[in-house]
Write a protein that binds this DNA or RNA. Structure first.
Length: 437
RNA sequence: GCCCCCAUCGUCUAGAGGCCCAGGACACCAGGUUCUCAUCCUGGGAACAUCGGUUCGAAUCCGGUUGGGGGCGCCA
């Protein structure tokens, strides 16, 4: 029997990383087993489901390359099948009508639990059991005639021939009901695997308040989908050896449910960022440039007047300082003359005694250079420092702050080479004017 | 309140009775390189929640305790 898994989100908002991880595991498991991974949109809650949320799900999955093997099934279109199943259960005495709780809302349909102790094997948690006394009958069709989640979920899993249900921990208790439903409907129950939650530093469910929590957040921040996929795959699972940087193909090859952790995992944004940096380094130059350009354009920093290879040269100089695409924005001074001055840097490097004199001297020398290569500007500044008997750093720092507004950045002389002589000298003059007094 | 689950460095984890006075990664600290930052190199601190049992031997098996989490809807 070929493995068929499914990701079944309810489109009521953004896609949370917990749900995304469930999607990843479903996808990896199906691919690993040579089976199919399906998508079912559980949009039966008409109040909360929105087309925008459906779109968010589709986009998130596409971004990560988690393609489904069959067209998505919209649960809202399956009401007739759900109701037919309820009729069938009613006819066979496995369900009954009642005014539950005497609320006066009218009669709903309740599923009759078998009245025996129940158990099932969870691929992650092991054998789980529940005594009959704790298993109450439950509503499968509301008094307004609409099917309830449990019924719809099971009926659709049967229709989609799902063999493995890989979902969040919060469904563990529901599983007893679902297994009973499968049995009553005469279908074999699938295998179940319940994933522990992703928690925050306090051990509580990771949420929006803890930082980026939705797929769109990571995308907007400039994370690479492959890095997020790798990180999330490793949050609660490991291949068993010491490797952590794993390609999509390697993940598919190595993934097994047996190695999924049964305890909650804490989201670590710092490690994600490190991992993203690793992927960023390995990224083909053209792709990195395209993504960085998009960020610059979005922030109004892109300048068509700059040479075609300019961005490439900037990234060459910046090297591994760009861990996220959005990091390029911190080096905005490469792209605009209207760069901000960091107050602390100005205080420390320009207001220092002798700093402005050094800057003025450097400006004169730089204005006169005929060769403005990194080697030439460095030699010129070293010669100046030596001649004045000052430390090299006392000359480097004022220049850096003058041309970039900040105390941190790439190798100064490579930075100057990219900026070019005209802009360098002009910026130094502007800075002297601004802080000269 | 009732039911269920979980418990190795700060974090993610390796570990399925002796290979473990517990390994890797991120983070952190110190040193080196250096014009700052980042990178890189070297070194360092850092954990089996607790109590008892089984065993020649326990991080690994069993039980209690403590701590954490989840579930108890005509939501999904």
């Amino acid at each position: 029997m070929t493995v068929r898994t499914r990701f079944a989100p309810s489109p009521t908002g953004q896609v949370h990383i917990g749900n995304l991880r469930a999607a990843i595991y479903n996808w990896l498991y199906a691919r690993h087993a040579g089976g199919q991974c399906l998508l079912r949109i559980e949009d039966t809650d008409r109040e909360r489901s929105t087309p925008a949320a459906v779109q968010a799900v589709l986009e998130a999955l596409a971004w990560l390359g988690l393609t489904a093997d069959e067209p998505p099934l919209y649960q809202s279109a399956r009401t007739a099948a759900h109701l037919a199943a309820a009729e069938d259960l009613l006819r066979r005495g496995r369900a009954y009508k009642a005014d539950k709780g005497g609320t006066g809302q009218g009669e709903c349909v309740l599923f009759r639990m078998p009245g025996t102790d129940m158990h099932f094997h969870d691929e992650i948690k092991g054998d789980l059991a529940k005594p009959a006394a704790d298993l109450q009958d439950f509503v499968i069709v509301r008094s307004n005639g609409t099917p309830v989640f449990h019924l719809a979920n099971v009926v659709d899993d049967i229709a989609m021939r799902v063999t493995h249900v890989i979902r969040g921990d919060d469904h563990v208790e529901n599983t007893f009901r679902h297994v009973a439903l499968f049995q009553a409907l005469g279908a074999p129950a699938p295998k179940y695997a319940h994933l522990p939650m992703i928690v925050n530093a306090q051990g509580k469910p990771y949420s929006k308040r803890d930082g980026a929590a939705y797929v769109g957040d990571f995308r907007a921040k400039g994370y690479l989908p492959a890095a997020l996929l790798n990180y999330l795959a490793l949050l609660g699972w490991s291949p068993g050896d010491d490797r952590e940087l794993l390609s999509r193909d390697e993940l598919v090859r190595l993934f097994t449910l047996e190695r999924v952790q049964s305890s909650p995992a804490q989201m670590d944004p710092v490690k994600l960022q490190w991992m993203n940096g690793e992927y960023m380094r390995a990224l083909p130059r053209a792709e990195r440039e395209a993504a960085c350009r998009a960020v610059l354009e979005a922030r109004g920093l892109w300048n068509d007047a700059l040479p075609a290879d300019y961005l490439g040269r900037v990234l060459e100089v910046l090297q591994e300082r760009v861990k996220l695409f959005t990091d390029i924005a911190a080096a905005g001074y490469f792209f605009t003359e209207d760069y901000p001055y960091d107050e602390a840097a100005v205080q420390k490097r320009l207001r220092k005694p002798g700093a402005r004199e050094a800057l003025a001297a450097a400006r004169s020398v730089y204005a006169a250079l005929t060769d403005f290569s990194a080697a030439a500007t460095e030699k010129a500044l070293r010669d100046l420092a030596a001649a004045r008997g000052a430390s090299f750093g006392d000359w480097v720092h004022p220049v850096r702050v003058a041309v970039s507004g900040t105390a941190i950045g790439p190798s100064l002389f490579h930075l100057l080479e990219v900026l070019g002589q005209a802009r360098t000298v002009q910026r130094m003059a502007k800075t002297l004017e601004k802080f000269g007094g």
